[in-house]
């Protein structure tokens, strides 16, 4: 697990990560907030469906894409937490897209 060395007097905000309400330090990056709560999976690899997690923490790898308040593909490492924020890991892959597509085609037959 990641751990925090943050000085104790920090204010906190509550956010929802994958359905669970948690308290996180005000001003933290969303990635840190997730990681400190053991939620290190950000998105799935789009082709293979393998789990992915943040890699660079500075905005250049785009591995940390998550859904924030209903909008997907947000970089968790560049996002600052805000009171009431809703965050979800992303589970979209090419396979899940293909499945939806096949279902639609079948509905048309």
């Amino acid at each position: 697990m990641f751990r925090s060395l943050r000085k104790p007097e920090t204010q906190s905000v509550s956010i929802n990560i994958n359905g669970q309400m948690v308290q996180v330090a005000e001003g933290s990056s969303l990635w840190a907030a997730m990681a400190l709560h053991g939620e290190t999976q950000t998105r799935l690899a789009l082709v293979s469906g393998q789990q992915r997690s943040a890699y660079c923490a500075m905005g250049v790898c785009f591995e940390c894409l998550v859904e924030v308040n209903g909008v997907p593909n947000q970089q968790a490492c560049l996002t600052t937490v805000e009171e009431g924020m809703h965050v979800c890991s992303q589970d979209l892959t090419e396979q899940s897209i293909a499945a939806l597509h096949q279902k639609e085609s079948a509905d048309h037959e």
Binding site: F2, S4, S28, A32, A57
Partner: peptide, 13 residues
């Protein structure tokens, strides 16, 4: 570098 970023801005290790 990410270790450093996480340490400097979030105190996370």
């Amino acid at each position: 570098g990410s270790a450093q970023v996480m340490l400097k801005s979030d105190g996370m290790v």
